[in-house]
Design a protein around this nucleic acid. Structure first.
Length: 485
DNA sequence: CCATTATTGTC
DNA sequence: ACAATAATG
């Protein structure tokens, strides 16, 4: 095959795919034989693109640093540009004389319309613009029901996903990259001010996480070898916490879902079929979220199920703040919210509990919770975060025929039996015997005293009564169903 | 009788 | 998923 323009550069536009391995667009750029201009654009201007949350920015800073180093060892510099992506790409095209561009597809209406514009910009000049599937194993728009409709329920989506055949094997990293050598203007990471300063809340997060492709790869390997086998039985226990912690790495594409799918299924000798399937199903929940986002671009702002449009959400700043700060008086809720603040992450079981509590017990709008998570989670994902919040609120894609109201006391007793999770994040309760940890207000006065706890002083009294809150939520649901005058 | 366990209806 | 109710021992 002749490569007519092998001396003119190709732009490799990195977005949510900060990896060398299994990166189809990068492989395309490498095999084109053209000098590669690698770029990342920080775009907070283009319409309908959600500005990143603070914790994600912390992650992205370090992930870009790591990715730039990876590229550097292959002789390639990562160019940083900011502003509207169409302008940044146009400028880069002029600066470098590039006659081709490639990227891995992203999802969401704002992102896709920017990408379509840029593709058009290249096509109009007879230049090449190619996009690849790398973020998801099956294109969300191609997973359809028998009557050619998008799925609204996970289980049939999962079945269809399986029928569509196993995801392709991951691609190897390109053997070599031919870098573009000329000087190109670039921002610095410091220009973007992604790291918090006054106050710097990132220290406890940095202790937990190492952003970047090599850390992601190591974590995946270690997880598959050690803990995958216990996933189906242990995944609901936030105390021992045997989850993979791969979510932020996946969020920024430091490791690909194809790689993880195959690593999981290759683990036949250590993990049984059940454990492997349950874990793979979680990976496909991510795909389902993108499927929903694709079909319902306003997933983060509008009820998926319009029947909830009349739901009488409360507005209560004090209650919202108590929830955000982990001061609700329900230890399992407070432990979760404090884990989130401290580490930028929360165990999934606890996400469901705190989400249900915000929406059902406090009657606060799920969008308040979604926004808080978006700002504080290092794995805040444009599809998974709204999809999960809508699921827990009952407004989303959920097959349950009833209005799910988690009981935070039962949930704590069931999933944090030994109280290790609560004690870790709510240390003011750590001297209370385990049996009282789920509901300290029911502990005998003598036990509270022995543990040095004064409810309302050293730890809050519950801000709502469970039974009353439950009844109030059910009444609100009824009220939202009354036909409007 | 009480505490634990199984069943069932709901949203 | 929960909670009211029934069954068990």
């Amino acid at each position: 095959m002749t490569k007519e323009n092998s001396n003119t550069p190709i732009i490799m536009w990195f977005r949510q795919d900060l990896r060398i391995h299994d990166n189809p667009a990068l492989n395309h750029a490498a095999s084109s034989g053209k000098p590669i201009v690698a770029v990342f654009i920080h775009d907070e201007i283009s319409p309908n693109i959600r500005p990143m949350g603070a914790a994600q920015k912390w992650w992205l800073h370090h992930s870009l640093e790591s990715h730039a180093n990876e590229l550097e060892t292959r002789g390639c510099k990562l160019i940083l540009k900011s502003g509207a992506a169409t302008d940044a790409i146009a400028q880069l095209k002029t600066e470098t004389g590039a006659d081709a561009i490639c990227w891995n597809r992203r999802y969401g209406d704002g992102e896709q319309s920017v990408d379509a514009d840029i593709k058009q910009m290249f096509k109009d000049e007879g230049l090449e613009a190619k996009s690849f599937a790398g973020h998801l194993m099956h294109e969300p728009s191609l997973v359809r029901t028998g009557s050619d409709m998008p799925y609204r329920v996970y289980t049939p989506f999962w079945k269809k996903f399986c029928e569509m055949g196993p995801p392709r094997a991951p691609y190897p990293a390109p053997e070599q990259l031919k870098p573009h050598q000329d000087q190109v203007s670039s921002d610095t990471l410091e220009d973007w001010k992604f790291l918090p300063t006054k106050p710097d809340w990132s220290k406890t997060i940095a202790e937990q996480w190492t952003p970047g492709e090599s850390a992601a790869t190591e974590r995946a390997k270690a997880y598959m070898a050690a803990d995958l086998r216990a996933y189906d039985t242990a995944r609901d226990l936030p105390g021992p916490d045997r989850t993979s912690k791969l979510s932020p790495h996946l969020r920024f594409g430091e490791i690909s879902p194809y790689t993880l799918w195959h690593q999981c299924h290759d683990q036949r000798h250590t993990a049984d079929a059940k454990a492997r399937e349950v874990w793979a199903k979680e990976l496909v929940w991510r795909e389902f979220s993108y499927h929903l986002l694709q079909e319902w671009p306003h997933l983060r702002s509008e009820n998926f199920n319009p029947k909830f449009d009349n739901f009488p959400w409360d507005r209560n700043e004090a209650a919202l703040e108590a929830w955000q700060r982990g001061q609700t008086g329900y230890p399992i809720v407070d432990a979760g919210m404090r884990q989130l603040w401290k580490t930028g992450w929360m165990h999934n079981r606890v996400r469901m509990i705190v989400g249900s509590f915000l929406v059902k017990h406090l009657l606060l709008d799920w969008r308040e919770g979604e926004s808080w998570f978006w700002d504080t989670l290092v794995d805040g994902d444009p599809a998974a975060n709204p999809a999960q919040w809508q699921w827990v609120a009952g407004t989303g894609a959920d097959a349950a025929p009833y209005f799910r109201i988690f009981n935070p006391i039962l949930q704590a007793e069931k999933f944090d039996k030994d109280g290790s999770y609560i004690k870790r994040y709510v240390p003011e309760l750590s001297d209370l015997p385990t049996q009282y940890l789920a509901a300290p207000w029911d502990a005998p006065a003598t036990e509270l005293k022995k543990a040095g706890i004064v409810l309302g002083e050293t730890y809050p009294k519950p801000i709502v009564d469970h039974k009353e809150a439950r009844e109030r939520a059910l009444a609100a649901l009824q009220a939202s169903k009354e036909p409007k005058e």
